[in-house]
Simulated scan of single mutants.
Amino acid sequence: MRDKYLVIDKQILPDIFQKVIDAKELLRTGKVKEVTEAVKSVGISRSAFYKYKDYVFTLSEERKGKKVTLFFLLNHEAGVLSNILNLISSYKGNILTINQDIPINNVANVSITFDISDIEISVEDIFSRLKEIKGVDKVELIGME
């Protein structure tokens, strides 16, 4: 299987990618409250931000303490979250945080951050396996550090 992600020196990429990162950082840190304000601050359009926001993120170069945060949409069924946690831990991923909303219309939003320092498979492989769990409607990579 070919790797889904690449690490590329940002110097050779168009400025739009760094501006998307900057806009996301403004939102994450609370320096701005809305996307409109963030994109105006960095000088890009809302459409460009939405086009790339889920595909552009920074990676820390350090190997120790690497973390990944995933967002899930889960069916409100017994055992779905447990199956996710068991899969992550079975490959030596160490769960750091779990944030879960109350299910609405039988679907719950969940974000999980886990340490991948000792993980036994690639992040891409674990991502694929998580998508296959019954009751997982959606998995998105929020970020890696």
Rank of each mutant, 00 (worst) to 15 (best):
R2S: 10
P14L: 04
P14W: 00
I16R: 07
K19C: 01
K24N: 06
K24D: 04
L27R: 05
R28S: 13
R28G: 07
G30W: 02
G30V: 01
A38D: 04
V42D: 04
G43R: 08
I44G: 02
R46K: 13
A48K: 08
F49S: 00
F49G: 02
Y50G: 08
Y50C: 05
Y52T: 07
K53P: 03
K53S: 10
V56P: 02
E61I: 15
R63D: 10
V68M: 09
V68R: 12
V68D: 01
F71N: 07
L73D: 13
E77P: 02
A78R: 15
G79N: 09
G79E: 00
S82C: 07
S89E: 09
G93K: 01
I95D: 07
T97I: 11
I98Q: 00
N99K: 15
P103M: 03
I104L: 15
V107R: 05
F114C: 05
I116L: 10
S117M: 07
E120V: 11
I121L: 10
S122R: 06
V123R: 13
V123N: 12
E124C: 04
F127S: 10
F127G: 09
R129T: 01
V139T: 12
V139S: 04
I142F: 13
G143F: 07
M144I: 15
M144D: 08
